[in-house]
Simulated assay, not measured.
Amino acid sequence: MKACDARHWGVDCAEKCDCKDGDGSCDAVTGQCNCEAGYTGTQCYDKCPVGYFGLGCLHHCQCDNKGTCDHVSGACTCLVGWTGTFCEKPCPQGFYGLDCQEKCVCVNGGHCSHVTGVCVCPAGWIGPTCNLS
């Protein structure tokens, strides 16, 4: 019995693998698809379930604060106002928004929300930027 290439299986390698995009590999004896990292299902068309990633979808995502996990690599994409490898840190003081790219405009000791940029004014100050006494 000759060895089959990655895209064929069965007796004399006569069967073609029926995997994602027609170019996926399969088991030479059973024809079961060997899914790439991040994919699952009988033909490898399904992304890993939410919360899992990688080869065989065996790895559990570690994103905090409702960050989303890439189904292939496990890399986290943070929601607005969060940063860090696992979205574990709020934006640093003075910044807010997506990827913490927005600069806060609060004055007179006001602190802005790391998510929205809305100023929280100290006693004695009011206004959108804490500029009115």
Rank of each mutant, 00 (worst) to 15 (best):
G22S: 03
H71P: 08
T83D: 05
Q43S: 14
G24C: 09
Q93T: 14
G41H: 01
H114I: 00
G110E: 05
C17E: 00
H59V: 10
C69W: 00
A37V: 08
W9A: 01
T85A: 12
G51C: 11
D99S: 15
D27P: 03
T77Y: 04
L79H: 01
L98S: 09
L58R: 14
V115R: 13
N131D: 15
K89I: 03
G127V: 04
C91S: 04
V120D: 02
D99I: 02
K66S: 11
G24P: 02
R7A: 11
L55N: 14
C78W: 00
G94D: 07
V50Q: 11
A37G: 05
N131W: 02
S113G: 13
I126L: 13
V72N: 01
G54F: 06
N131K: 12
D5E: 03
Q62R: 15
L58K: 15
F86K: 12
A37E: 11
T85V: 08
A37F: 04
V118S: 06
L132H: 09
K89C: 02
T30L: 07
K20V: 07
K66C: 02
G67L: 08
G117H: 11
V11A: 05
Q62L: 14
Q43V: 09
C13G: 04
C87L: 10
E88A: 11
K66E: 12
F86G: 00
N131R: 09
T42G: 06
I126R: 14
C48S: 08
C48T: 04
T83R: 15
